[in-house]
Design a protein around this nucleic acid. Sequence first.
RNA 1: UGAAGCAGGACAGGUGAUCGCUGGCGUCCGGUUGAUACCGGCCGCGAGAGGAAAGUCCGGGCUCCACAGGGCAAGGAUGGUCGCUAACGGCGACCGGGGGUGACCCCAGGGAAAGUGCCACAGAAAACAAACCGCUCUCCUUUCAAGGAGAGUAAGGGUGAAACGGCGAGGUAAGAGCUCACCAGUUCCCCGGGUGACCGGGGAAGCUCGGCAAACCCCAUCCGGAGCAAGACCAAAAGAGGGGCUUAACGUCAAGGGAUUGCCCGUCCCGCCCCUGGGUAGGUCGCUCGAGGCUGCGGGCAACCGCAGCCCUAGAUGAAUGAUCACCACCUGUUCCGGGGCAACCCGGCUCAGGAGACAGAACCCGGCUUACGGACUGCUUCAUGCC
RNA 2: UGGGAUGUCGUCUAAUGGCAGGACACGAGAUUUUGGAUCUCGUUAUGGUGGUUCGAAUCCACCCGUCCCAG
Length: 115
Amino acid sequence: MSDERFPKQERLRKRRDYLNVEAKKQRKIITGHLIILAARNSENHTRIGITVSKRIGTAVKRNSVKRLLREIYRRNKEIFPPGYDVVLIARKQDKNTCYKTLFQEIKNAMGSRTW
RNA sequence: UGAAGCAGGACAGGUGAUCGCUGGCGUCCGGUUGAUACCGGCCGCGAGAGGAAAGUCCGGGCUCCACAGGGCAAGGAUGGUCGCUAACGGCGACCGGGGGUGACCCCAGGGAAAGUGCCACAGAAAACAAACCGCUCUCCUUUCAAGGAGAGUAAGGGUGAAACGGCGAGGUAAGAGCUCACCAGUUCCCCGGGUGACCGGGGAAGCUCGGCAAACCCCAUCCGGAGCAAGACCAAAAGAGGGGCUUAACGUCAAGGGAUUGCCCGUCCCGCCCCUGGGUAGGUCGCUCGAGGCUGCGGGCAACCGCAGCCCUAGAUGAAUGAUCACCACCUGUUCCGGGGCAACCCGGCUCAGGAGACAGAACCCGGCUUACGGACUGCUUCAUGCC
RNA sequence: UGGGAUGUCGUCUAAUGGCAGGACACGAGAUUUUGGAUCUCGUUAUGGUGGUUCGAAUCCACCCGUCCCAG
């Protein structure tokens, strides 16, 4: 996959979209630092939404977590199932929060299911 | 050299490469259009967080609403003086008080002689004074030790955070501002200086008046309310009004069905089409050129102001400004080289290894305040020590 | 963005500006063969920094934390 872009069509952009995924979710996976929700959408590509609440920390911490998760998606689109809306919700973060650990968590979570 | 005080800012790592994000401009392509206008896509160019962007503690601009003139009341805020400012609870200078050897720092710093209230415990007494232990005099009892009654007194004692001036002399039965000198303080008057807070000097009075207003309160000054999710525009939908809907005709669109005893007309209901209006979802604007920044000159002790020249520097909306790699820069140790020194050692360069890289993310925009923060730099000043 | 509430022993909760009290819990002892119950004794607190005051949990200012509401 040479496509490492992340245009607006591949993001969830409204609160309604997030509530829709929450209501119609077909998978809910809880890992050490994340909660992953997935629901089938009407498009034929993946859409990603990221939720980081104030519980995680200050605006700087929340932004950095969001950037990390976006980077993981952008670099590794092949591990995400096409035609699904995926919501990544951050749980309590710690010192181990970095690209490698979060990538492994998501890869294991996605690989553990058949789509 | 060491310790300290104050102030400041295009300080808050830099450069390059690759892959991304946001919005701007441009070429080309596609769609649309009366249009050089709009939408979408590829590529290219250049831009993209802060000193606090934070907390939301004050003050404004801007927008809408209310009153459309003035006063009073209520509520809130502020509180030395003079200035600065669009304004401020901010800033500057000065005055007064307090702290520090000093540079310098801190202060809600109006009124207690307008009224009300409070001052625990202790103490006789906590505020128009009064009198527990005392001290003194007179009278009575009398065992001549003392006790009782009355009068005078506030020097001494002890309590307390605070006790109704201090010290000395005179005076007295004992005492007392009772009198006097000096000192402190209060109020008033006069003179001089200052825009003023206030300062300096002189005089008089009564001799002396406690503290708390970040207790109620009084005085002076200021304040209409809400906030860019303000507000404006476009506009699927819902709900509203009007016209129409067999065939045929006409420039276009449409779909008719049911109830009213069977039929026709009429009326009503549902549906459909068009128009008006409406404003939900959604979108656009508001949105970044502004009490703007930098430099120079001039005015002012300063805060700040004036003039001239130059510059344009983020506009997101589940919310962009990131990730990886390399090199350089910072700190510590170290190998080697060069220089200085009798030496300990110091300075510069270089190799290698290790370490630090904080607080924190624009959300309409400004002026402040407050709080968080690893370190580096610059300037001025003080104290101590040594040398000349 | 605007508006509130609140912070006291480990937990819950009192306290006019004047000795921070009570209950549960915890620790020690007594009682009991042991445990429980009971009794006695004890430890532990005013979110922080300043200020006003003779004196502050209380009054004032600024921070910190937690929770809630409206759009």
